[in-house]
């Protein structure tokens, strides 16, 4: 298959920029990234359709030398879907700005809670108390630090030094 190198290079460039933007926190930048990736994919379809030719309209029964119409139809569908996507994500970004004053993609609350609880649990007095061989023996719990200290800070310090 003959491949148009210009199209390939543009596709790669758009895709790279798109992925970079996708990694941003702000939803509007993510959206621009998505649009760029969408355009890159549309170009990829043109590459997939083979070399360009005449407009795909059959005149007088001549079917040779015309472009493949199918990828173009697919690209058209993809463009329509990208349009709807853009509209929806824009609406979400606007609503997020209304509610929070920014449109940053937020961390999952429960995830953050579970993660922190687990971290604290692992360094806490209660963990040592419940995993001790002698349930009544409180002294084992004091081996680390007093529970009133912030164990997370302590853990971070520990990790920082090792």
């Amino acid at each position: 298959m003959e491949v148009n190198l210009t199209l390939v290079v543009i596709t790669a460039g758009l895709m790279g920029c798109g992925v970079y933007l996708l990694l941003e926190r702000s939803l509007s930048r993510v959206l621009v990234g998505l649009v760029m990736i969408g355009n890159a994919v549309s170009l990829a379809f043109l590459v997939a359709g083979g070399p360009a030719g005449r407009a795909p309209i059959v005149e007088d029964g001549v079917t040779t030398g015309i472009s493949d119409p199918l990828p173009q139809a697919m690209v058209l569908t993809a463009i329509v879907i990208t349009l709807a996507t853009t509209a929806f994500v824009l609406a979400m970004a606007y609503r997020s700005w209304q509610l929070n004053g920014h449109d940053d993609v937020q961390d999952d609350v429960e995830d953050a809670t579970v993660r922190r609880l687990a971290l604290r649990d692992a360094t806490s007095d209660a963990y040592q108390a419940t995993t001790s061989d002698y349930p009544g023996d409180d002294s084992s719990g004091d081996a680390g630090q007093a529970p009133e200290d912030d164990p997370v800070v302590a853990l971070h310090d520990e990790r920082g030094t090792t």
Partner: peptide, 16 residues
């Protein structure tokens, strides 16, 4: 909206 953002972005990526 927070949950939806993650869902929408992940699925847009998979559609791409």
């Amino acid at each position: 909206l927070r949950a939806g953002t993650i869902y929408v972005l992940v699925n847009l990526l998979s559609s791409t």
